[in-house]
Nucleic acid binder design. Sequence first.
DNA 1: TACTTGACATATA
DNA 2: ATATATGCCAAGT
Length: 117
Amino acid sequence: MAQSKLPSNTYSKIYDVVRQIPPGKVATYGQVAELAGLFGKPRVVGYALFRVAEPDDSIPWQRVVNSKGEVSYSQVRNGSDYLQRHLLEEEGIEFKKNGKIDLNIYRWNTDPTNINF
DNA sequence: TACTTGACATATA
DNA sequence: ATATATGCCAAGT
């Protein structure tokens, strides 16, 4: 029974959550982790995205940012540090002068109990 | 099998 | 705001 070929169920959950992120919105690792059932384990999310970003381009891993509202550049990614920001701007996300994103606006509403506007 | 590293988050100083 | 410390889990070596 070889199952090492397919990704872990945990990862599949993460991928599914990331694909659910609508365009023009961003989600934090903690947010994705929570939706994926990995509450409190954002590192697994980051690692999962790092793993999936290569074989699967269908996953908008760029829409996943850290809690600081900054885009996490992967030094070992395509080598384009600005590519990330560029794609997000294409989505309609605007960056601050600090290079940060207004999570207050662009944060993906995954919390129905949260007050929107 | 054990240790180290990692696209993070939260708390504390 | 920055730096340090801790937690959590998986993959790499």
